[in-house]
Design a binder for these strands. Structure first.
Length: 418
RNA sequence: GUGGGCGUGGCUCAACGGAUAGAGCAUCGGGUUGUGGCCCCGAAGGCUGUGGGUUCGAUUCCCACCGCUCACCCCA
């Protein structure tokens, strides 16, 4: 029985790698123009980073993390998201001291032990950006803008921005109480799941798909009615700036993030083409998180793009990487002559391949054709005797002979016009 | 963790409970002893996911397990 990859862990095969590069390259470009700098952080952190950062009683921390003791008994976890670890690094290296505003991005795999399905793997990739040091609504905009830009510029059509405000530590408790007491009053009529959620994560009840729960929640109090003046002004300014930019959005009063650190602005970019896991990108404001991780009380806002999901929305890229020159050497003498030439051409940047097997001309030409070679160079006994080798243009079928002399290397390069 | 669907050459899929499990694509070789693609011919490639059961006989029906997948849950 051959060994298979672990459930929920996938190989990214050569035929899909170009799409990955396309996404990553575009993201690098966008981040660069927005003035974000790259940071690379460990895949493993002390479990504490996530339990304190994301929240001890969130599903992610409670039942989805890969947590294990190291050889000395210290509890470690594979990162289930990027923000907590990134802020740990910011704090550890006092990066916030360099400038009042810190703009960072990172990309890489995250790990959550969930049941795999479409758009949900146990190792999945995120492109993540964080903007620290300001509460200004325009910083929310920047982060949303980048996510939107990356997704739209990749050619994804059918996406929608959903946005909401979760309030702040001043107004959220009042709302939470109101929601809780409402949920208590209707407790008997909620589905078992929501009865549990009403205690652990009341906002999540809004997400329930049960008809009865939806009906009940239509009369539930909404955060919007409880937002303090500052939060109201903040979200309004974010929405105004989105309008200025012509980024279409819908206000989703039920939008909730499953991580405890979010306050005020939260958003998702969703696509109906993804199946049940419809969120391509998401993020929000997390003032207070850095403080909770033991750092200074710096506000922040961030976003993460699900690369695997984004990939599901893209047209598959061509995998074939054409080559410039395929060298056919027939026989041992020819092979020996040809190898140093190949080395030179490769150092000059030409994409050159040869057959590793001692096959006939026909077979090697077939191989050259399959590889998409533009030119084929043929060197056999006749050519050695004649001291001229054959250069064949596979597209036009033209063939010509060029002398094997000191000018061979540059002569060929001129001929094939690279 | 719960439920549905599906497991046959590398890939996409056939085969009423019946014979040596087939086809297309891909691979390799030949048709041209040194000229690719198209065409023709041929070769190689299978413990039909695993283990039980029913049957004279199971790829086919039943059960269990494993795997994949979609959905619930949750989230990027």
């Amino acid at each position: 029985m051959a060994i298979r990859a672990v459930r929920g862990f996938k190989d990214i095969l050569p035929q899909e790698i170009r799409s990955w590069h396309r996404i990553e390259d575009l993201a690098y470009g966008v981040f660069n123009t927005f003035g974000f700098k790259e940071i690379r952080i460990p895949l493993v952190e002390k479990t504490e980073v996530f339990s304190r950062g994301i929240g001890e009683y969130t599903d992610i921390v409670e039942k989805e993390m890969y947590t294990f003791p190291d050889r000395k008994g210290l509890s470690l976890s594979l990162r289930p998201e990027a923000t907590a670890g990134l802020l740990r690094a910011v704090n550890e290296h006092r990066l916030y001291a360099q400038s009042p505003i810190l703009k960072l991005f990172t990309m890489g795999p995250m790990f959550r032990h969930e049941r795999p399905q479409k758009g949900r793997l146990r190792q999945f990739y995120q492109i993540d950006a964080e903007l620290l040091g300001t509460k200004a609504p325009l910083s929310d905009l920047e982060v949303i803008w980048m996510a939107w830009d990356i997704i739209v510029r990749l050619g994804v059509k059918n996406v929608r921005l959903e946005i909401n405000s979760l309030g702040c530590p001043r107004c959220r408790p009042g709302y939470r109480d109101a929601l809780k007491s409402y949920l208590e009053s209707v407790f008997q009529d909620l589905c078992p799941n929501c009865q549990r959620r009403s205690k652990t994560n009341p906002l999540r009840v809004f997400d329930c798909k049960e008809k009865s729960c939806r009906e009940i929640m239509k009369n539930a109090p909404l955060m919007r009615q409880y937002l303090c003046p500052e939060c109201t002004e903040h979200i309004n300014k974010v929405l105004e700036s989105l309008e200025v930019l012509d980024i279409p959005f819908v206000i989703n009063p039920y939008l909730v993030r499953g991580l405890d650190y979010y306050v005020m602005t939260t958003f998702e970019i969703v696509s109906p083409d993804l199946g049940a896991q419809s969120t391509v990108a998401a993020g929000g404001r997390y003032d207070g998180l850095l403080r909770d991780l033991g750092g200074p009380d710096l506000p922040g806002v961030g976003m993460a793009i699900g690369v695997d999901r984004l990939l599901l929305l893209l047209e598959a890229d061509e995998e074939t990487l054409p080559i410039d020159l395929f060298v056919v050497a027939l026989g041992l003498t020819a092979r020996k002559k040809v190898i140093p030439w190949i080395g030179t051409w490769r150092r000059h940047g030409l994409r050159v391949q040869m057959s590793y097997e001692d096959r006939g001309l026909k077979s090697q030409l077939r191989q050259a054709n399959r590889l998409g070679a533009h030119y084929v160079l043929i060197l056999g006994e006749d050519e050695i005797k004649e001291e001229r080798l054959i250069v064949r243009d596979m597209k036009t079928h033209d063939q010509q002979k060029i002398p094997i002399d000191n000018n061979l290397i540059s002569g060929l390069e001129n001929l094939i016009d690279m």
